[in-house]
Every structure is written in structure tokens, then in C-alpha cells.
Amino acid sequence: MEDQSSTRIDKYLWAVRLYKTRSIATEACKKGRVLMDGLPVKSSRMIKPGDVISIKEPPITKQYKVLDISGKRMGAKLTSDFIKDITPDEELEILRLTKIANQLNRPRGMGRPTKKERRDIDNFFDPDED
């Protein structure tokens, strides 16, 4: 019988809804995206309350603290009782800046900006000119 004070990391990541399927969580472990103590972990690694899990989601690494163990997938509202996001503010700032930078770049193949888009770009760089 499985001990409820610890569970496999892939099963836990799936249960707390960090990954859509357990096989995706297992694949993330195999690719070295899931870390504990700065080292990649296998999907069979047992975790317990108090452990800190790091997940590489380029361009940042998110960190989570295990509050409680569950082997069954739960509703999104219940996950806050089982896991806490402890990602540093510096990492979240990098993510915010990356999103802003990506909004300014046009996807390749989109052609020239329309007249309205050119006006918006001009207003963004020179807001005092109207």
C-alpha cells in the first residue's frame, strides 16, 4: 500500500495541476526541467511536505513548496492547500519584461504594419506628438 506522507513527483505535479497529464510531467522530469536542490530529478523521486520543487519554464525557473501530499487530481481551487508558489519576484519581473518585449515584435510573415499600427507605434515612441 502506498504511503500518503510521500508520493512520486510526476504524480504529484499532475495532481496539483502543474501539468495537464501525468505523461507530460514524466517527460518534463526526463528532460531535466524538474529540479530539487538544483539537481534534475527522475519521475520516480518520492516527495514529502516541505520539499521545494523548481520547474524550468523558459525564460524563468518557477519554485513551489509542497504543503501536503495528494495522489489524486484535484480541482484548481483546492491546489492552494497542497502547493505554494514561492517564485522570487526577480524571476516574475523577467517574465513580465519578456512578455512586453514579445508584444513589440511582429511575427515573421505578417507583412508591413497597417496605417493604424504605424500610428500606434509612432504614438508609443513619441507620445507627446499628436
Rank of each mutant, 00 (worst) to 15 (best):
P40G: 05
R118W: 12
D10R: 03
L35N: 06
K11S: 02
D89S: 09
S54D: 09
V66S: 00
I83V: 13
I55Y: 08
I121L: 09
L39P: 01
Y19I: 05
D37P: 03
L95T: 14
I83M: 09
P107W: 10
D120T: 08
I83T: 01
A25D: 00
D10F: 00
K116C: 15
K11M: 05
K42W: 06
R17I: 07
K84D: 14
P127L: 11
L92F: 12
Q4C: 08
F124K: 10
F82T: 11
D68E: 14
Y19F: 15
K20Q: 09
T87K: 15
A25T: 03
F125D: 07
R73Q: 15
V66R: 06
R118K: 14
V34W: 02
D3S: 13
K115C: 15
Y64E: 02
D51E: 12
P88W: 11
D3Q: 11
I121E: 08
I60P: 05
N123I: 01
K77G: 14
A101Y: 13
P49K: 06
D51Y: 06
G50E: 04
I60H: 04
L67I: 15
T61L: 09
K48V: 03
D3V: 08
S23W: 08
I24G: 14
C29N: 02
V66C: 00
D81L: 05
I53L: 04
T98N: 13
T61D: 04
L92E: 13
T87D: 15
E2D: 10
L35H: 07
F125E: 01
T114M: 08
D51Q: 06
I55H: 07
I53K: 00
S5H: 02
I60F: 04
D85I: 07
R108N: 02
E91V: 01
D81W: 03
P88S: 11
T98S: 08
D130R: 14
I86G: 08
T7K: 04
E57A: 02
A76G: 15
R17N: 12
D68C: 08
I83Y: 00
L78F: 13
R33Y: 00
A28Q: 08
L78T: 12
V41S: 06
S5A: 10
